[in-house]
Design a protein around this nucleic acid. Structure first.
Lengths: 205, 205, 205, 205
DNA sequence: TGATAACCGAGACGGTACGTCTTGTCTTGTT
DNA sequence: AACAAGACAAGACGTACCGTCTCGGTTATCA
């Protein structure tokens, strides 16, 4: 009857066989989740709602995902694709950062993106496993892209050789993130320019 | 006379008379809320739980607060007192920032403070009114304190005269906040030192 | 055991001074109660509703009446006046009974009277004190009126000298009441005629 | 589209599938209801109390019954079984009626039966659907049994051929019912005897 | 003619129950 | 065995009233 090899053993919890998974149900669930996040927002959507909309039993969701957040994360992952999306590298670090951060700002000013990101932030606060997943899958690749661009800039002599590039990435994204999350002030292109300017001054050789 | 000022009229919703508020119940509710946040965390506490613990009818809570979050915010406000707590000003900006930010880091590494702050962050994401309250009451005074210290430093010629101090405040707190909130890396004193160093380099005259 | 002079000893329960009673409040309460019984029915009216409608504090109601039922009973008593209303006595018992019972049937076929009577019936079932009050104040005088008429008929030799007149009254009113209360069949004048006929046959000398 | 058969459409209100009903829960609920009626009486029992006692979620009750009264009626129906219980027919109508009505009186003098019957009477007053159910399921069969006995007596020439037997049934049960319900006088065997005597005098050929 | 009770309107209070909602598990066929 | 459907136990939600308990503010009786 199995059991022995299961390390996390709270209930009998027979792991489902992924080979028998219904692709139709899987797709329908992610579709429904994506649609609902857009329509009513993360907080107001329910497992029952997803199941009903997907034409799926609730058990089918619970069989494959541990929580609503996990479903939505998967839906998001599917849409975002798996690409790392490296930053542009024109040789002009300031210009490249301005382009990318302006685009980021535009995106976050979008109702849709704002919503889903806030939902993830909220969810991440009381679920460490989910936090890890979101961080590694959505955030880390993004931060790595920034770091790669900074490495290239360092090689080009644009920024100081002994700067801590992990902190440098946070210096660029942290303030913007702070302002967006806490709504302390509007996110504008002008703000991006000031921020990039100031951050790069800290990194000059 | 009567009612003219009521714009949002869904139910009759007669506002209660604050002069007749029971101090005993008020205190008991905030006590219970504070205790429960510490014991089970914000997400798992309930209005029923608060009421039961406070020895109070649920209606008494709903009469004075619109949501669980509002109760906890009040509990927090009461504990935090109303002081703005200005930053130290020894004449050495870097040293002063290091002291304050190291203290902040220590605080955030505390289970209790971590919990309650994450709870507020989560809650703030799907309640704009609550967001405004938290931002203005808890966050803004803190940011103002930083800005005041930077103003003093600018007067002393320690930092550039034309730096945008609002962004400067975000440059100091944003990265730390980002790292804490998203748990991308541990919060240490060493990190604070690197961060202060880098941020101040951006502000040098 | 204890409490010495207090016969009804649950709380201190100082009896209010009827001399100081506000006639305005008294009247307003009974008016409100009467209106509400008609509008929403006994079961759906509330003490709060009566108080609000009468422009009166709830305590003022509880000071003078023990229950909603008692208020409504008083309202009813006020309207019904105190008259015993003796049955007509034309010398023809059957005719007199037919007149009175037909009128009763018409009354009970009225929405208003039906409602209030059903409310009393319902209430009387789980409140013995109230039951006694209703029985003595509303029912007993009515039954006495019937009995008086039967006594007169017996004196006139219309009915048997040794008939139990208390049972005779029930023989006339019980069937009608049963049919009305349990809605087993419609209440019509024809029914009254059949009933009177049958009942009087039982009482013939 | 769809839903065509739904005339009363307030909420979507999907009817539950009776084939999937849990027999365990069903039984436990009726058991709990029956027990509670006996222990605290109908008026003081609550849906929450039934659910708790039955070890059942409240929703499970609301899924299958519209009200507390309906649950108790079902509990009662289950106990009463479906039998019509015809009246004895010894050929002596008066004796048979005396036996049956004396038994009825004894039953109604029982705390338990008194209680449940009063509860039904009270409930029936403000719920026409429930009234119909109670009347048809509990009362009508009983009245039919009386009528059948009277039919037999008429065939035997014991009572008048042209008597209205529906009214005759009421003549027998109405007075007794009136006295019990309104507590105007005690229910005794002597009373039954007087009543039967008087009523049969009305029916004599 | 004050003083001083008590009543009064108002409505906050501690409670109980309501009927609804959602959660995560369990059950019953179907594919 | 995975699936759609949905019943189930649990329990929080926010509301409605209950009957009691303050609050001032008026009366009305008595010293």
């Amino acid at each position: 009857m199995a059991e022995s090899t299961e390390t996390d053993s709270t209930p009998p919890r027979r792991a489902p066989d992924p080979r028998r998974r219904s692709e139709r149900a899987h797709t329908a669930i992610l579709d429904a989740a994506a649609a609902l996040v857009g329509e009513v927002g993360f907080a107001k959507m329910t497992m029952e709602g997803i199941a009903a909309r997907a034409g799926v039993g609730k058990q089918t969701i619970y069989r494959w995902w541990p929580s609503k957040a996990a479903v939505v994360l998967d839906a998001f992952r599917r849409e975002a694709g798996g690409e790392p999306a490296p930053l542009p590298d024109t040789g002009d670090l300031a210009a490249d950062l301005r382009v990318v951060l302006r685009a980021t700002v535009d995106e976050y000013n979008t109702r849709e993106v704002d919503r889903i990101n806030r939902a993830f932030i909220a969810e991440v606060q009381h679920d460490e496993d989910f936090a890890r997943a979101v961080t590694e899958d959505l955030l880390r690749p993004n931060m790595t892209a920034y770091k790669d661009r900074l490495l290239s800039a360092r090689d080009a002599g644009e920024i100081s050789a002994d700067a801590d590039l992990d902190v440098a990435v946070e210096l660029l994204t942290g303030p913007l993130y702070h302002r967006w999350l806490l709504r302390t002030a509007p996110l504008t292109h002008a703000y991006v320019d000031v921020l990039v300017d100031m951050a790069l001054r800290a990194l000059r050789p």
